[in-house]
Structure formats: structure tokens, C-alpha cells
Measured scan of single mutants.
Amino acid sequence: MTSCHIAEEHIQKVAIFGGTHGNELTGVFLVKHWLENGAEIQRTGLEVKPFITNPRAVKKCTRYIDCDLNRIFDLENLGKKMSEDLPYEVRRAQEINHLFGPKDSEDSYDIIFDLHNTTSNMGCTLILEDSRNNFLIQMFHYIKTSLAPLPCYVYLIEHPSLKYATTRSIAKYPVGIEVGPQPQGVLRADILDQMRKMIKHALDFIHHFNEGKEFPPCAIEVYKIIEKVDYPRDENGEIAAIIHPNLQDQDWKPLHPGDPMFLTLDGKTIPLGGDCTVYPVFVNEAAYYEKKEAFAKTTKLTLNAKSIRCCLH
């Protein structure tokens, strides 16, 4: 018999989150649709729960009410004593943790798909938090293969000092899905179709896995975050240069030392320094102006996964 890495157990509980950011409308629209008619997301033997994560922000069509829901799922915020004085999103995070967690427990949901849009030209993107997770690498390989020839990129946010504390991190297997470009507060049919297909293929993978299909060893190309880059700023902290036209919409493309990065209003080009080629992502993302992030630098690498098969009882 072929030796293989056996994944822990079959997958039982899956959640699909929309509206973690209330103005990213593809996930909101799909989740609302699936709450009314969820036939397309159901798979035999699998509990799939669509869920609106930040209903107040969705109602106002804004990213958040008090603070970013997708950055506060750490033990400090989840452990705060519940009171009306807490920011709305912290209270909501505790409610979500109660419903789908608790985080880092045996009772937490197996998989959470968190649906997002970006204003950046990132196409279909899967966000991975753990480079050693054979199950998710296999799932992402399946999704990428199923979507081809449509490109699907994998963004690895594993980093020693950049801690995200994402909404989906309460699950055993957290999956971020990011599709763009799409303006905030807008629905685009092409973007919706791409996100819908990503979810379909992900659920198909889980179904095949649960039925005992063995997935042979595989490898995927990923883009691992190195650092986030702020806009150049003046002495008052105001933005002093904008994304250069040569960099705009060039997510995932190589940016070499000396290539144009920013452009000042008086026409001066600010190039990339250093001696390493990087791959920019979230270029000129609207939501990241407040976070002082013009783009993120990534490096390209390959992740390998062992063969996996479900432990059938």
C-alpha cells in the first residue's frame, strides 16, 4: 500500500463567511444568496454554514464600524470581559468565536472560507496562513488546477512579526479568498463568478477527501510576504508620492531593483532599492491607505505537500 500522510479526520463542519468587511460585496451577495438557497454549497455528509460576519458594517456598506474585524481574533480580544464599552467588532468577534470556535479547541469548525474583495488587480487569490499544512496545500492545488487556465495565486502570510489574527483563524483550516479588482461597494459579475467557482472547487475537494480519495504528493507556487511598504510621506505625515503608473495593476509581476515604484507630484520617480527582485501584491489597495500600506513585497517559492487521505471509520 502506498505510504501517505493521513489527515486527522474527515471534514464535518464548514463555514463560509461574507461581510467580514461590509463594503466587499461579492461575499456579502453570495452568502445572502446561499442563506436563501444553499443547494449549490451542500455536499453529502458535510455541514456547510453561510454566515454574515459583520452585519452592521454590511448594512452601512462600510469596511467596519469601530475597528477591523479581520485583525482582532487574538486571545487578548477574544478574552476581554464582555461589555457595551467594547468596540462593536470586538464584541462581534467574541460572538463569532462562540459560534464557530472556540479558537484553538477541538470544537472549532474544521474549515472557514472568508470571502473578500480587493481594489487591487490580484485576480483569484487564496490566502494561506501555514506553509506546513498538507491538507490546505492539497486543497489549493486542486482549486488552482480546477480553475486553469484562469490564474489563481496563493498568498502566504506566515511571518515572524506580522500577526494578522484573522476572522477565519478560529477554524482548524483557515482559508482566505480574495478576488479583484473590484471597487468597494460595487458588485461585478465576473468577480462574483470567479469567487463562486473557487468555493465550488473547494467544496468538491472536501467531498472527494471525505469519500476516501487519496491525493498524491503535489507542489504549489506561493508568494510569501516579506514586508509592507508605506507611501513616501512629508514631515507632516502626508502622502508625498503615489503608486507609479508602471507599478499600478502589476500585482504578482516581478519588481526589480531600480524599477519605478512611486511618483511625486513634481514628476520624480522613486525606484525600488535593494538588490532583490520582489513580487508586489495589494498594490494601491483602497482599504490600506489608513493602514499606511502602499503594497506588500513578496518572494516566490514552492511548497510541497505529502499525499493525504481521509481516515475512514
Rank of each mutant, 00 (worst) to 15 (best):
T2P: 15
H5K: 13
H5S: 14
A7R: 11
E9K: 15
H10P: 15
I11Q: 01
Q12L: 04
Q12G: 14
Q12P: 05
V14W: 05
A15R: 02
F17A: 07
G19I: 04
G19N: 03
T20A: 02
L25S: 15
T26P: 11
G27C: 05
L30S: 05
N37G: 06
N37Q: 09
G38E: 12
G38L: 14
E40Q: 00
E40F: 06
I41M: 02
Q42K: 11
T44A: 13
G45A: 07
V48S: 00
K49F: 09
P50K: 00
F51T: 05
I52S: 04
I52G: 05
I52K: 05
T53Q: 02
T53M: 07
N54C: 00
P55A: 11
P55C: 10
P55M: 09
P55F: 08
R56I: 11
A57H: 02
V58I: 10
K60M: 12
C61T: 12
C61G: 14
C61K: 13
C61I: 11
Y64W: 13
Y64S: 11
D68H: 05
D68K: 02
L69I: 12
R71A: 14
I72N: 12
D74T: 13
D74A: 12
L75S: 13
L75V: 14
E76C: 12
E76H: 12
E76Q: 12
N77D: 11
L78T: 10
L78K: 10
G79M: 14
K81C: 13
S83C: 12
S83G: 13
D85A: 14
D85I: 13
D85W: 11
L86A: 13
L86K: 11
Y88K: 06
V90H: 10
R91Y: 11
R91I: 14
R91T: 14
R92S: 07
Q94I: 13
H98T: 14
L99I: 14
F100M: 07
S105G: 14
D107V: 10
D107G: 13
Y109N: 03
Y109G: 02
D110P: 00
D110S: 00
I111A: 01
I112W: 02
F113K: 02
N117K: 04
N121G: 03
M122W: 00
M122R: 01
T125W: 02
T125C: 14
I127K: 09
L128G: 06
E129H: 10
E129S: 10
D130Q: 02
N133V: 00
N133G: 05
N133A: 06
N134W: 08
F135V: 04
F135P: 04
I137Q: 00
M139E: 05
F140W: 04
F140C: 13
I143W: 05
K144N: 01
T145P: 05
S146F: 08
L147A: 04
P149W: 04
P149H: 02
P151A: 08
Y153P: 06
V154M: 02
V154P: 04
L156V: 07
I157W: 10
H159Q: 14
H159F: 07
P160W: 08
P160R: 11
L162P: 15
L162V: 14
K163C: 10
T166W: 10
T167R: 09
T167K: 08
T167N: 08
R168P: 09
R168S: 11
S169A: 10
S169R: 11
S169F: 02
A171F: 01
K172M: 02
K172S: 06
P174E: 10
V175E: 02
I177R: 02
E178F: 15
V179E: 03
V179N: 03
G180M: 05
G180W: 04
G180Y: 05
P181S: 01
P183G: 09
Q184S: 13
Q184L: 13
Q184A: 14
G185H: 01
D190W: 06
I191D: 05
I191R: 00
I191Q: 05
L192Q: 06
L192T: 12
L192A: 11
Q194I: 09
Q194E: 06
M195S: 08
K197M: 13
K197T: 12
M198H: 04
I199D: 06
I199V: 14
I199S: 03
K200E: 09
A202E: 06
D204Y: 01
D204L: 04
I206G: 06
F209T: 03
E211N: 14
G212L: 01
E214C: 09
E214F: 09
F215W: 06
P216N: 06
P216S: 07
P217Q: 08
C218S: 00
C218M: 01
E221D: 14
Y223V: 05
Y223G: 02
K224E: 07
I225W: 15
I226R: 07
K228Y: 11
D230H: 13
D230K: 12
R233G: 00
R233P: 02
D234H: 08
E235Y: 07
E235G: 10
G237Y: 00
G237A: 03
G237P: 04
E238C: 09
I239L: 09
A240S: 14
H244L: 05
P245L: 03
L247W: 04
D249S: 04
Q250G: 12
Q250V: 03
Q250I: 06
P254S: 05
L255T: 01
L255V: 08
P257F: 02
G258H: 08
L263N: 00
D266F: 01
K268C: 08
K268W: 00
K268E: 12
K268D: 10
T269W: 00
I270D: 03
I270T: 04
L272F: 15
G273V: 10
G274R: 02
D275T: 11
V278I: 12
P280E: 05
V283L: 10
A287Y: 10
A287G: 13
Y288I: 11
Y288M: 15
Y289T: 15
Y289H: 15
E290G: 14
E290N: 12
K291R: 14
K291E: 10
K292I: 07
K292T: 09
A294S: 01
F295Q: 04
F295W: 00
A296N: 08
K300G: 02
L301Y: 08
T302A: 06
T302R: 09
N304K: 14
A305L: 02
K306N: 12
K306W: 06
K306I: 07
S307D: 05
R309M: 08
C310L: 12
C310G: 13
L312D: 15
L312V: 15
H313E: 15
H313L: 09
